[in-house]
Amino acid sequence: MGKYVAQRLIAAAFAFIIIVALIFFVLFSMPGNIVSDPTIKETVRKAIEEKYHLNEPLPVQFAYFIRNYMNLDFGTSLFVRPGVAVFDVFKERIGVTIQLNLFSALFTLPVGMFFGITMALKKDSIYDIIASSLVVFFISVPGFVMAAALQYFLAYKLGWFPIVLAPEVKLNWTKFHSMILPIFALSFGSIASIARLLRAELAEALTSEYMLLAKAKGLTFRQRVVRHALRNACVPLASTFLYLFIGVLSSSLVIENIFGVPGLSKVLVSSINAKDHQLTLGITYFYVLIGLLMSIAADLSYGIVDPRIRMGGRKDE
């Protein structure tokens, strides 16, 4: 197990370095930069170019960049929040993003499981057929379309929810109430994915031989489902959920903008538009890192949930 984790971490580190380089070069190869504004005085432009090594060839800039990151210097925002360190911008904005994503995850898992389980238990009933169609619908509709639709119907037409996120800093009812729509928009797709997966897994588990044996033991239906079928059906759930969470993080980028959430993604999008490259890189790398760690966690989760993988190879016979 330890060896496996080490292997995965090394592989992830390589992937991280490649992605870091790729994003850096793509970003800095884009035409124009922060000082291409013609109204800036020639002397000022020179000074800025000098300070940020903008006149050097790209590989040299990359070397400077890496050196700074090694020293935990993540640069300074020049345009979106002039003069503020990237790390401070990040610290200030991450709170609400994490809050939103965490709520969405906490909402997704139980609701998705509920639908998956009930659909499997009532397989081929009217309920299952309707729910399955909805599942396909929610999986296919992209999050931002869902967000816009929710905003239009529930917030604008019906007025049940505020259109954008409440500006309160503390988490109180007003704030939570305004967070409901973004949470919905973030969760519906993942709920549908979990429901679909669990329905398929549980339906298969219910018809398995070990369920027949459990029945022959004299266990009640509830005991059989909870103790035997669900246990098996949930084996692939852990990893799927972690992968879904990566998806939620990325769709949160768009959805934060729709609902005016002052989170990381808002800064990210404005930094890209303003060519505030240091800020863009800092936030992007954070997302890359989270994504890589999540995928390692997803792979390890198999081993935690499934004894056959946990003890793979250790056969005593």
């Binding site: 398995s208 031989e209 070990y210 027949l212 044996l213 459990a214 022959a216 035997h228 246990r231 098996n232 084996v235 949930v305 499934d306 004894p307 056959r308």
Partner: peptide
Amino acid sequence: FQDPLSSLNPV
């Protein structure tokens, strides 16, 4: 049962 390989709960 006939097939002991699949009649026990694997997890």
